[in-house]
Design a protein around this nucleic acid. Sequence first.
DNA 1: AAATCTTACGGGTGACGTAACGATC
DNA 2: GATCGTTACGTCACCCGTAAGATTT
Lengths: 97, 97
Amino acid sequence: MELRHLRYFCAVAEEQSFTSAARRLHVSQSGVSGQVRDLERELGVTLLRRNQREVMLTSEGAVFLREAQSILAHAQRAVEIVTRASQGQYGKLTIGL
Amino acid sequence: MELRHLRYFCAVAEEQSFTSAARRLHVSQSGVSGQVRDLERELGVTLLRRNQREVMLTSEGAVFLREAQSILAHAQRAVEIVTRASQGQYGKLTIGL
DNA sequence: AAATCTTACGGGTGACGTAACGATC
DNA sequence: GATCGTTACGTCACCCGTAAGATTT
């Protein structure tokens, strides 16, 4: 599992559409479909119900969505933190461990 | 940035060695070196100081390490949660946020 | 010389886009 | 017929391992 899987899944879940998600991610629809399929296969869990006309979260998918969103937000925060820390340039202290 | 970058970086930081980290990850040393280099390049931040005989965290690296460890733990937890949810079939609790 | 990290180089896996198919409205 | 998701397939990027190079002890 990689962050890409989470990014794609979250986009689909939020847009409730593979097509819209692909547009938002600037990738092809088939790419999104494949990655979400791989994620579900790896987890062994069906996250989305592709019914007629609609893409809906399963109950497991809803649970996983919150986690995935939280993880992505955390990753983004981590980048900002370390970027800011390097710009700030304050501590030259090398903290052990 | 992908979870792989975080896994590799955390292993190196924790082992304080690229060689040990590679062993632990069951990949080659050069692979670890390359991925950590790519991560630093993407962040625009030097995370590790490769001095003679030692690999030490920079202050920015120490900050990022905590975040990375937390993210990886979160990701692992997410997998467990959704796996358990699908097995249990009866949603235990939906932990808010 | 031994140990360690980096860099160069090839190969194989996989992510991606195009296109064709099936299904639903 | 139009829209949407899936699948097949060819391409290309990139991850990885091997090997050579640089540095230190």
